[in-house]
């Protein structure tokens, strides 16, 4: 087990990316006994890398370490004040037992389209620091994913840090629709922010990756009037591509996203308000 980042990176390089990093294990260990083929792989245990554990507030950013857990952020009153959608997201990840082990970096690296942490981080313009033997590079979280479980992160790179800019946020909102009120994988997720940088609307479980919805953002930046959920249908159609799966249907996803979006925005955007039928 490596205890420094340097050691960890050299192991990764040596094994040519065949080593699987493991942080909280809350993705990798699910139904572990049945996944015996994976028992043979080599795991790179990150849990000893104390240097990457703590998160910190710098002048202009919140820096989340590779080992920072959801619970670490839940328990930070500063986060609740400044970036409540991070805390909101973290509180919906599984339950305490998962939050206390699961990491933000693992949430990103697992690349699930339903990742709640990614959802909020993307709406806050997070930047991911990737470290490899060849050095460190930074990738904007909204540019990290290429397709379902596909990322611009090589197997021999580690996520070492996530940097979230501290901005004045006029509005932020996180909505998760799951099949129950706790311990649920997201069926439709939305994180919305508004700052100097403009609107950010990010959707999860609506496309092969967590995804920014640029058409919707444009509508908001341009203050296009909307008088009901249906007003978002075209933009949703161009931004996302929901599917039927074991948890829900594409029809449900599309129509609930429109309704949630409408009602969240109607709270703050005067140009979005109910015409006739509001639901």
């Amino acid at each position: 087990m490596p205890t420094t980042l340097g050691e960890a990176l050299s192991v990764l390089e040596e094994l040519k990316g065949d080593a699987v990093p493991i942080a909280g294990g809350t993705d990798l260990m699910v139904s572990w006994p049945e996944r015996f083929i994976e028992h043979e792989r080599t795991y790179l245990d990150l849990s000893g890398l104390d240097e990457l554990r703590a998160h910190r507030w710098t002048e202009d950013a919140l820096e989340i370490g590779a080992l920072t857990t959801f619970w670490d952020i839940v328990r930070d009153p500063q986060a609740a004040r400044e970036m409540p959608i991070l805390v909101d997201a973290a509180r919906t990840v599984g339950a305490v037992q998962i939050q206390s082990r699961g990491t933000w970096a693992g949430n990103i690296a697992n690349a699930s389209p339903a990742a709640d942490g990614v959802l909020s981080m993307m709406a806050l313009d997070a930047v991911v620091e990737l470290a490899g033997a060849e050095g460190v590079e930074e990738v904007h979280l909204d540019e990290l994913y290429l397709g379902y479980k596909q990322m611009r992160k090589r197997a021999d790179q580690l996520i070492t840090r996530v940097r979230i800019p501290r901005r004045t946020l006029e509005f932020q909102s996180f909505v998760k629709v799951g099949s129950r009120r706790a311990q649920a994988i997201t069926k439709i997720g939305l994180a919305i922010t508004r700052s100097d940088a403009g609107w950010r609307v990010v959707a999860s479980s609506m496309a092969p990756t967590v995804k920014r919805c640029c058409a919707i953002e444009r509508m908001l930046d341009d203050r296009v009037p909307v008088d009901g959920p249906g007003g978002f249908a075209a933009a949703i159609g161009s931004d996302v591509s929901p599917i039927d799966d074991i948890r829900t249907t594409a029809v449900y996803r599309e129509s609930v996203m429109a309704r949630v979006l409408f009602h969240e925005l109607a709270r703050v955007c005067p140009w979005i308000c109910a015409g006739g039928d509001s639901v």
Partner: peptide
């Protein structure tokens, strides 16, 4: 699996 056969939790 418990992740997709959903039974009520404390919050439900």
């Amino acid at each position: 699996q418990f992740t997709n056969y959903i039974i009520p939790t404390t919050l439900d």
